[in-house]
Design a protein around this nucleic acid. Structure first.
Lengths: 253, 253
DNA sequence: GAGTGGTCTAGACCACGGT
DNA sequence: CCGTGGTCTAGACCACTCG
């Protein structure tokens, strides 16, 4: 097919830039390498910085670039596959993939959560906040909503709140032998709290995974986990996921 | 409003705007209602249009708004749950949720696809292009890669290409009684082709679902489906999905 | 043709990371 | 301190939809 001719319907500059940069990334840059700064790049391509930034935003959204204020723009490694489909991933693991419990409070859930939990909306629930680490990097921030009826054995005196309390609640929950239930994935943007936990700026794109856990036919807990969309590929099913959608393109001569 | 005070750590204007607009959407607007145009809104909030647009982009990413050139900005309905986890969704259904086969070609797959299919990369495969419609709207554009060895019975003369050929290939494939395999979800941006099929502009955010199908222990097909991230919530597991993550209620106009 | 959102420019200043 | 990316401005023009 034809290339390099004038277009009856010219594509936007930032889109063309994205294409050019994508090819450059595939062929001329190594993972971790830092790109020239935005002002130089813009000058080199003969566009305003805002236009250049529009192209960079695209590439960051696609997980090809990583930008950090005060540092620079670097070539991102391929997204890591993060298991989300099985129950094994739910509990504190070890080594390269684990949850770190951060906090636990007892409060009224948002209306939408109460509805999914099938509880009175005024009834307080345990809310566990934890972070999922993979290869030393935070990949997800989760809020676990647990009705008090799900963990009746919990001794209230153990720890009033904080990480110790969170671990106590999770220990009780784990005894229920939850069945992983339905889950859903949608695009969202990180709120201030999540952004801090994920080491991103507010508004950063995230994949929100909501999962309902069952035990004894009841809804025992609800998880709302926000995964970094730039660095994560969520995998469901047995394997570590299908290796698609990244890396060098075909060269059309 | 508008008479708030200085902040020790001032949040960006566009982020504050996003918050204000979110609350306004929750309380003062009904689904489908059109907002004032961007120039008016910017003036009303005392910011430049670019800043206002940054806030609108956030809200569109979150599925709260829908913007169409030449028309205006409207309040988006809650995202629709789209089943992606079971095999049932794979075949042409009927009524409100169905695939429309569009085309079929025989060509060399991209290197990454060939790898996942465990075929020689120079070996041509069937490539079926189809679109998933839900409630009359396009929600996904899919490329199905099928090695010729998976559908040996296909009579090459039936239809050389086009929609008829696509249906013939799918019919053969369906006879294999595929087992749904592993799948992965990641954020991407729509290419020119996908954008047209999804009725969006190039670069629109999409959720890319790659699924590997098995039959007789072999990889029989690979699907790369791009779902509109603004309108879709992908659901896995039995139910129609968990109803979370969308704000309060409506109001009559 | 009027009105909408989409693209683009050429500046400015700010917040942060490293020195 | 300097250099980086992040935010913001006030314009301009373009592409699209619709009456």
């Amino acid at each position: 097919m034809g290339t390099t001719q004038l277009e009856s319907v010219p594509e936007p500059k930032y889109w063309h830039l994205r294409t050019v940069l994508t090819e450059a990334l595939d062929s001329e840059f190594a993972v971790g390498e830092i790109l020239p700064n935005e002002r130089d790049l813009a000058a080199r391509f003969g566009v305003a910085r805002a236009t250049l930034r529009q192209a960079l935003e695209q590439l960051e959204l696609e997980g090809r670039l990583q930008r950090r204020r005060g540092v620079g723009t670097t070539v991102a490694p391929p997204r890591m596959g993060v298991d989300v489909g099985t129950e094994q991933h739910t509990w504190p693991g070890a080594g390269e993939d684990a949850w770190q419990s951060a906090d636990c409070t007892l409060a009224e859930p948002p209306a939408t959560v109460a509805e999914a939990l099938e509880t009175d909306r005024a009834e307080p629930v345990h809310i566990v906040r934890r972070t999922r680490m993979t290869h030393g990097q935070p990949v997800a921030a989760e809020l676990l909503y647990i009705p008090r009826s799900s963990v009746p054995e919990l001794s209230a005196i153990d720890a009033p709140s904080g990480a110790a309390r969170a671990r106590a609640v999770l220990r009780e929950l784990q005894r229920l032998e939850l069945e992983g239930g339905e889950s859903a994935v949608e695009l969202g943007s990180a709120g201030a709290d999540d952004a801090k936990a994920l080491d991103r700026l507010p508004g950063a794109p995230v994949l929100v995974v909501t999962t309902r856990y069952h035990a004894d036919g009841r809804t025992a807990a609800l998880s709302v986990a926000t995964y970094r969309a730039d660095t994560c590929r969520l995998t469901f099913g047995d394997s570590g996921g299908v290796e698609i959608h990244q890396g060098p393109e075909r060269r059309a001569s």
